[in-house]
Design a binder for these strands. Structure first.
Length: 113
DNA sequence: TAATTGACCGATC
DNA sequence: AGATCGGCCAATT
């Protein structure tokens, strides 16, 4: 599997995160077939062309933390985008118990198809 | 080729 | 709750 394919699978997973829900770097990595590749996800998001319109802001760090350093441009952008999605962000954090996306449980809990 | 860096994670203190 | 530390893995220097 070449690196380009890896980027694509990561982007595919990120693109699949539904509005109003979030996922973590580690989780996205796992879903993309990289069990310990959380850092790769960071790189992949950084390299993603804007033309893909990827919902990168739905990807956060473990514990619901906003990964970007507080005070940066991206930090504020991410929060406002999440809020626009209906995700509650308090003090730079998201309640994962309420908003974390897990594809398999998604159908069971929310009855989505 | 080796060292450094980074939108990370988990356990531990 | 916040800080430290070791482990991870790829891209960059």
């Amino acid at each position: 599997m070449d690196s380009h394919a890896v980027l694509q699978s990561i982007w595919r997973v990120v693109a699949a995160i539904p509005a109003g829900r979030v996922s973590t770097y580690g989780e996205v990595a796992k879903l993309a077939g990289l069990p310990r590749g959380a850092r790769q996800v960071g790189h992949a998001l950084g390299k993603a062309p804007a033309s893909l319109h990827l919902p990168w802001f739905r990807v956060i760090a473990t514990g619901g933390r906003i990964a970007l350093p507080k005070g940066t441009r991206g930090y504020r952008t991410q929060i406002s985008k999440l809020r626009a999605d209906g995700v509650a962000v308090e003090n730079g954090r998201v309640r994962l118990t309420a908003f974390q996306w897990t594809p398999d449980l998604d159908e069971m809990i929310w009855g989505l198809r």
